[in-house]
């Protein structure tokens, strides 16, 4: 009995080592670093590439290796093999000294700096931005602020938004939790500086309380299927690998986005400049999931309505929040469609 247990433990340890070896292995180089921020360029794997490079912008609270989970299950690899020059922003793990970083710093300083780095490195006039979840809020705000005057060519070619929350009223549970007399976001920030990763993970679990238990049962039911076990553990491992939320950015989003709903109402300000999503004129595609419990449709659907682009579209894909960027359905259905959309607008 003990021997059997030890064998299983050893097998699991081996599996975890194998997973770690396979994660984030698409060849890349670091081209820019500032504080904890890292800007990577994935090495092209085709003889020629599309004129417009793609810059992937991740959320602050999740690690970006979800985009490069394993060979054959990597959005980055998929884009690179399709002929794109791909760059990725890893915001890194904030430390106590970063507790004062606000959304303004990300949108008006760090993201524009990375766009300039990509343009210079690639020798390209403009870039396509791919923003996921909270990263999508950053790319949308940036696009609205950076929109050039009519007829002028801007730094931005396309916006590919994935599961982007834009309407704070649609984040019903989060809104209720920080509502009047409930959880005090300022108290969290005053206590910890940055919101600890354990609280972030706990918050995600509240959005779907029984999912973890269900996942474990599913795992037991498929314990004899190594491919299933590996795929499952990969995602579980990533989900448990949340990052702390920089305190000031959390406070700002809790107050201005979740409570105040200022983005959708056109009252959100970045460094004193009011953000009007209607100023976005570049082609925009918003890919959302039908059963997204993190960013429900009520929180995401207004984006396409509000932007001023003529070429804009929303795709509702069967599945959940993460199944847009990982999993079998993404590899075979979602990513090829996204590549087709982007390729036609990247020459």
């Amino acid at each position: 009995m003990t021997g059997d247990y030890e064998q299983r433990r050893a097998a699991l340890a081996q599996l975890e080592q194998a997973m770690a070896r396979e994660t984030a292995v698409t060849p890349k180089e670091l081209i820019h670093a500032r504080g904890t921020l890292r800007l990577y360029r994935y090495l092209p794997q085709t003889a020629d590439v599309y004129r417009v490079p793609v810059l992937i912008v991740m959320s602050l609270v999740s690690k970006p290796y979800i985009f490069d989970l394993a060979p054959g299950q990597s959005l980055v690899e998929h884009l690179v093999r399709a002929g794109f020059e791909v760059y990725l922003i890893d915001w890194g793990t904030p430390r106590a000294e970063h507790r004062g970083l606000k959304v303004d710093d990300y949108v008006a300083e760090l993201l524009p700096e990375c766009v300039e780095q990509v343009r210079a490195y690639a020798g390209a006039d403009s870039v396509s931005l791919l923003g996921y979840c909270l990263g999508g809020i950053f790319t949308a705000l940036y696009a609205a602020l950076e929109a050039p005057a009519a007829a002028a060519r801007g730094r931005l070619a396309n916006l590919l938004q994935i599961a982007t929350p834009i309407n704070g009223a649609g984040m019903e549970l989060q809104r209720a939790l920080v509502g009047p007399g409930a959880l005090d976001p300022d108290l969290i920030v005053d206590t910890f500086g940055n919101v600890p990763a354990s609280m972030i993970e706990g918050a995600f679990q509240m959005l779907r309380p029984l999912q973890k238990a269900s996942g474990r049962m599913s795992l037991l039911n498929h314990a004899d299927d190594p491919a299933f076990v590996k795929a499952h553990l990969r995602i579980v491992r990533w989900g448990a690998d949340a990052l702390p939320f920089p305190g000031a950015a959390f406070r700002q989003l809790a107050n201005d986005f979740i409570r105040g709903n200022r983005i959708v109402e056109g009252r959100y300000e970045v460094r004193g400049r009011r953000v009007d999503l209607g100023r976005i004129r570049v082609p925009l595609l918003h890919v959302v999931a039908e059963h997204d419990h993190v960013v429900p449709a009520a929180a995401s659907r207004d984006l396409v309505r509000l932007v001023g682009s003529r070429d804009k579209d929303e795709w509702v894909i069967k599945g959940g929040h993460v199944s847009l960027v990982a999993g079998a359905g993404a590899v075979t259905r979602t990513w090829p469609r996204m590549v087709g959309w982007l390729a036609a607008r990247s020459t």
Partner: peptide, 16 residues
């Protein structure tokens, strides 16, 4: 801002 989904389950043997 993400939480893991359950990967698409492979067909398992029927259990009664």
């Amino acid at each position: 801002m993400s939480t893991p989904p359950s990967p698409a389950p492979a067909p398992a043997g029927p259990a009664t």
